[in-house]
Design a protein around this nucleic acid. Structure first.
Lengths: 350, 350
DNA sequence: TTGGCAATCTGTAACGTTTCAGTATATCTA
DNA sequence: TAGATATACTGAAACGTTACAGATTGCCAA
């Protein structure tokens, strides 16, 4: 036990992973020098620096995260905050991979911080900020006036939002241009002779709800089509609710001949509702839908789709937070992804 | 600065979150006593214990994770190791939520450790073990002879596998009974008069590949049906590959009149392939598919489905790892989820 | 020769926690 | 009464890191 203690003191302890002390012992330098040499500090001799870094690489030294975190407060963690029951499945999967892809080349880890329907969305944010559990945060389901963004801004926690806010404040974000999506969708339907359009929108409250609505309205007046209100449901509603509401709508005298849908799963429900009403997709009505994985064309080849790339969103968001942490100006860390053209796979008219 | 220093020493520092020192100062006790009182150590007076815990709750004390981790080596982290490009989307999403649900009531955090196609699956595992970045690990895509499981076993890292191994070694797992699934699927198809069945299997190499194959074979001989080989693709193949292979198969003289499919997305491709060949689902051929979210019936109501609950899997896996960390016997932390009955939504045959 | 200065390197303390080895007091035993 | 024992508490050290405030050396100007 005495020997063991001496070995420890000398940093020569055979078992356990190498620490600065180990390196110091091996190089004959002090821990401080080793520490500084590893991070290219200026007051270290060029030769010493190279020597230390060589040895460090050889024995596979990796800084102890707890030590760094305790001393500096840096966690090397990015937290992705997700709603447990409202988030789109492919969104979760793709955004995680997108973020991971970027973090993989950094010392950062991704931790997933979930919150559920019943919880205040602020709760996980407060936890992260108060406990300093992360160096940066990514949030989704962004609102025009988002208390989470405001809170993090006030408390100096770097973050990026999926979707924009509208509170006269600048912060990193990545967003898909849903205004442009709605416009393209309406134009396409109009070009096929559709004149009475319904929109299955994102949930009211989120910023991209109004982006989508505005794009839809702008394009309607541009092409001279009219709107059939369909605002009792949103893509946050259950498949069954959307299906029955759609069927209900389609049985009315004044039914739409075109749909714009903001989510792929919801589109399945819309189509089911249309068919429940005895109508036929591509003949009686057309549907333009966003999708994040290329599956809708298998469902009904008559569907018109616009792709949204969540993996890209994840990567962009990760890059943004890291940029902010690294000291870049928040205003330079914003990106907007433009929708590609409306894709048709097999369509009677085309 | 002198004052600030004194305040810090006394633990009365106003800013920053409370530490043991703060609590010690407030209660007039030593840090050691406070530390022990908070974890119900035996040698602390009942009244003192209550007093400390009261104050701690009042001021919202939360142990500093870095401090604990540095001192004890405990990370309070469970790592979910995922394959970036082969994992099913709904699997990722649901399992994360399942795990989260369980971890939410513990001090544990979930960190996602991804690896990509190009990487050795062992790499993230070695990283986790060597750096001690997690107290427990959850892995998927389990193989009969799984080097990851063996490695973690050898290195004393608690883990749970989604799917079983077959190396004469005991460890926690959660699995879906794919043997039973295949049997039920075949029986159902047989009961509808289907006699020439094809199986779209999991990727060879994973344990549940042979479970599924065995169930399929067992049931075939039970019901006296025959197999139409379809083993040039698995559910890991691309949608397009599965689709074209299916179409190819269906154009052959000796084509199947029934399919068993191990994944929902693959089923979309199978159906597309069937229809490419000019045949009709429910008339010329029937398909029984696993699904993890209730969407297939919207796709084609003639589909027969068996549900697999990935969220449950996540919860079970989390409970298992926590149990192992907590000292329970690995053998007592294994669970098998039985498939429900084969569900039909709308089928010509009733 | 002396002092000054730059270039390198180093020891100490601190981050917040837990463990170890105590100390002080009260209570029991003989 | 003396000693033993149980009870309740405490300080110091350590985990691995970095920041601070030196320390040592060599070299050059005056």
């Amino acid at each position: 036990m005495d020997k063991q203690r001496r070995d420890k003191k000398e940093g020569a302890s055979a078992q356990g992973r190498p620490t600065l002390k180990t390196l110091a012992f091996m190089t004959g330098l002090g821990v401080t020098t080793v520490s500084r040499a590893l991070k290219d500090a200026p007051e270290i001799g060029a030769e010493t620096r190279r020597r230390v870094q060589l040895v460090a690489k050889q024995i596979g030294y990796r800084p102890n995260r707890a030590g760094v975190r305790l001393r500096t407060g840096r966690t090397n963690v990015i937290s992705l905050v997700l709603n447990t029951d409202r988030e789109i499945m492919s969104f979760v999967s793709d955004i995680i991979y997108g973020v991971s892809e970027v973090l993989a080349e950094t010392p950062y880890h991704l931790i997933v911080t979930p919150y559920s329907r019943s919880q205040d969305p602020m709760e996980p944010i407060r936890y992260l900020v108060e406990t300093g559990s992360a160096d940066g945060v990514i949030i989704s389901r962004t609102q025009p006036n988002d208390p989470r963004a405001r809170y993090m801004l006030e408390h100096g926690m770097p973050f990026a939002t999926h979707g924009r806010t509208d509170m006269g404040v600048v912060h990193p974000y990545h967003d898909f241009d849903n205004h442009a999506f709605a416009i393209e969708a309406v134009r396409r339907l109009a070009s096929m002779g559709r004149r009475k359009l319904a929109l299955l929108s994102p949930p009211p409250g989120l910023t991209y709800y109004s982006h989508t609505l505005n794009g839809f309205a702008d394009a309607l007046s541009e092409v001279g089509a009219s709107e059939i209100p369909f605002n009792t449901v949103s893509i946050d509603h259950s498949i069954e609710q959307i299906r029955s509401r759609t069927a209900q709508l389609m049985r009315r005298e004044n039914r739409p001949d075109g749909f714009v849908s903001s989510a792929a799963a919801a589109t399945l429900a819309i189509v089911a509702g249309i068919e429940d009403a005895g109508l036929k997709l591509g003949r009686d009505v057309d549907v333009v839908s966003k999708q994040s994985s290329d599956l809708l064309h298998l469902f009904r080849p008559e569907l018109l789709v616009v792709n949204e790339n969540f993996r890209l969103a994840g990567s962009e968001l990760a890059r943004s937070v890291l940029g902010w942490i690294g000291g870049a100006a928040p205003g330079s860390l914003q990106s907007l992804s433009l929708p590609g053209e409306v894709l048709a796979y097999r369509h009677p008219a085309g």
